[in-house]
Design a protein around this nucleic acid. Sequence first.
RNA 1: GGUGACGUGGCCGAGUGGCUAGGCAAGGGUCUGCAAAACCCUGUACGGCGGUUCGAGUCCGCCCGUCACCUCCA
Length: 499
Amino acid sequence: MAKEFRIYNTLSNRTEALLPKKKDHLTFYSCGPTVYSYAHIGNFRSFLTADLILRTANAIGWDVTYATNITDVGHLTEDDLTDPSGEDRMVKALKSKEGEQFVNIWDLARHYTETLVEDWHRLNLREPTVRPRATEHMREQIAAVQKLMANGHAYETDKGVYFSVTSFPEYGKLSGNRLENELEQTVRDVVVDDDKHDPRDFALWKKDDKHLMQWFSPWGWGFPGWHIECSVMAMSYLGETIDLHAGGEDLIFPHHECEIAQSESLTGKPFATVWAHTRFLQVEGEKMSKRLGNFFTVRDLVAPESEGGKGIDPLAVRMTLFSGHYRKPFNFTMKTLKGNVRHRERLEEIIAMVGHPEEGTGDYAGETGTVLAGMYERALEAMLDDLNTPAALAQLFGGTKMILGKGDALDEQARAAARRWLSDMNALLGVVYYDDAPAPAEVEDPLAAQVEPLLQERAAARAAGNWGRADEIRDELSALGVDIKDAKDGTTWKRKQQI
RNA sequence: GGUGACGUGGCCGAGUGGCUAGGCAAGGGUCUGCAAAACCCUGUACGGCGGUUCGAGUCCGCCCGUCACCUCCA
């Protein structure tokens, strides 16, 4: 029986079945970041939505051709202008304190691309089929602009080439921003290109022979507009009409609206069947901003304390980012993160109890297996229903509780079923263990050298019934920032969470 | 001003007409030298006012409140 994958389509404002043009093969494009800084948790909430779509589609047996781009051209902060006085975010980053470490703008782009991919793997996001870069598709972008000019959808001024919005009557169908005068209502105190035909017209090419990144075109030296790269790369790898296009909610307008206008003017065909957008997250109840001090990059949270991070389990960060529905406002708080660190510890306990799925899984046999199979089915159903991640997590917690509750009473058949369940749940949600990439290398904790002798001394004291000394050592360890736990087969320790 | 979302128990967060969501916190208990962890038990909430219905958190209308986007943003 074929499963139906339902997802909210911004274009129709309805939740509808995702129907790949080619049976059981989804073509999917997700807008990636501009690489001018380390990616923050908000960026990753959006990438994570794409990852969950990929996992859910795979879980019902679909093949997915998944492209997510790297924008390594710094675009002007005022996108509709070709006036080079506007500031480029990558140039701005290069001139900043942080930017001093880079030889040039290309070096900066390379660095932030590499670190993006590192963070991507830390959060257990699966690799896309392709990860195209804007700078590597310059020829196609220029060709697309030429074609748009030839079609009468674009025109040239002294400052650049613009897309003519009036040439595409459906402009506004995605965002609802149809009115010409709305743009004029926005207060702006920047210089506008007076030669533009319509205030809504946006740049396809910007003439600028002073820019740090420039290419030669039929219009002289310059660089492409922001929107054209995604149109070109999506069509290059996925075809003229793609099944699903995703991104953050801020991209609805102007970015995706402009992509539609350009792409459909080029091909005369619908550009994407379904558009999915992830809502911004808030942090501690407010919009994330550096000024408010609630701005977190992934690295801030997951890097080891010795490297200035908080040393938080990356999979707990991942779990937190989807503990709210992707289409609702979500408030990321340290309290929620802390709760998910606990959930992750419980998952680790289960793996210690029933074994790692990589050691081999079984069928959903026996009574335990039947219950776990039902939990997986419900989790999958939840994900198929517009990525209902909180409901899917409830199933994960339910199974966790059951397995921990039965503990040593589980026989080998039940343990094998549990490993199968962990494997299936992980394939769907990616929070049990790293499945697509090797886990970040374990580093030797320098604290171990201090802790181990004390634990040995304490074990001796306990064996001798010297409880006073044993408790004293526990206090000493606590002062070092270490929590210990006595179990049947010895004492384990871990760092106290710093959050 | 335009457009779109949302308002659920102390907190977070599912739930589109009748059937226990779940988690965290809290209280009680089991276990343990003591801790910790784990496990068990305990909570009938849906912004307000009308309406539809045998029955509404769920549908309709109005009101109140919060948030987002409207050329920096994932």
